[in-house]
Simulated assay, not measured.
Amino acid sequence: MSDFNVGFVIFPGMTQLDFTGPFEVLSRLGTPPSLSAPSPFPDAKTHVIAKTRLPVMSDRGLGILPSCTFQDCPPLNLICLPGGAGVVDALADDETIDFIRREGERADYVTSVCVGAFLLGAAGLLRGRRATTHWAYVDLLPRVGARHEKARVVRDGNVFTSGGVTSGIDFAFAIVAELAGAEVAKAIQLAIEYDPAPPFDAGHPDKASEAAIALMMSRNETARANLRQALDNRSAPTSG
């Protein structure tokens, strides 16, 4: 079996859990060097990709070290785009968008978490697709040619988009189940004890209080405006 290359594209200002949640799940497809038990998908390899090999700072100040760059990463079977405030600057970076487009067009699976969906959209990978993103930004999906579908994880062909932050863990389990079977996915879920029991049932606007929704929206007003402007800039015709 040839390698199955899973690639996470990271950039300054990303939300680390958008990346580390699905990374934790998908990296367990292969057998870690410390374990002798065989894996049903032993040739899976996980790559952390950035423009350079310098540490990349998340939107909360956590530094993450890439394992390869746009120039030296292998062809990807799965590409994943996290979200975060840094999506605004990434949208303006042609090198980043071109890499996403190139790898996404040939990947078996094209995936995103939260507002990472807009990076897929800017690369033309969501045009005419059903998709989701963080609930506070779903109204912007038509700007990249996508149709919003209300779900935590949305699949349209080989494209998986997921909602805000923690939902990336769920799409990763869906991928594992497809690649290696439901029992492997369940075993990984058990291994990481993914058994959510939050103290508040407020993780979606359908459940949250009006006060919580208003507070969250007020805290994200600037971020929404910045993303909307970045999408407008990306779609605006260039002069000359």
Results as ranks from 00 to 15, higher is better:
Leu78Asp: 09
Ala107His: 01
Thr96Lys: 02
Cys80Ser: 14
His148Val: 07
Glu149Ser: 10
Ala151Thr: 08
Asn158Asp: 14
Asp108Gly: 15
Tyr109Asn: 00
Ala107Trp: 02
Gly104Thr: 07
Ala92Gln: 15
Ile79Gly: 05
Arg152Ala: 08
Thr133Leu: 13
Ala146Tyr: 09
Leu141Pro: 10
Phe99Trp: 15
Asp156Arg: 12
Ala131Val: 07
Val138Arg: 15
Thr96Asp: 01
Asp94Ile: 03
Thr161Cys: 07
Leu141Cys: 08
Glu149Asp: 10
Asp156Gln: 11
Glu103Gln: 15
Ile97Cys: 01
Leu81Cys: 15
Tyr109His: 13
Gly86Asn: 06
Leu141Trp: 12
Cys73Ser: 09
Ala123Ile: 05
Pro82Ile: 05
Ala85Val: 10
Ile97Met: 02
Thr111Met: 09
Ala90Gln: 01
His148Tyr: 15
Leu125Ile: 06
Arg129Tyr: 09
Gly145Ser: 11
Val115Pro: 00
Leu141Phe: 13
Gly83Cys: 09
His134Leu: 08
Asn77Met: 03
Val87Ser: 04
Leu91Cys: 12
Cys114Ala: 09
Ser112Tyr: 06
Val159Arg: 05
Val88Thr: 11
Thr96Ala: 04
Arg147Gly: 01
Arg102Ser: 14
Glu105Val: 01
Phe118Pro: 03
Ala122Thr: 03
Asp89Cys: 03
Val115Met: 12
Cys114His: 02
Ala123Cys: 10
Val87Trp: 04
Leu76Ile: 01
Val144Thr: 08
Gly124Asn: 12
Gly86Cys: 07
Asp93Lys: 01
Arg152Asp: 08
Ala117Trp: 06
Arg101Ile: 02
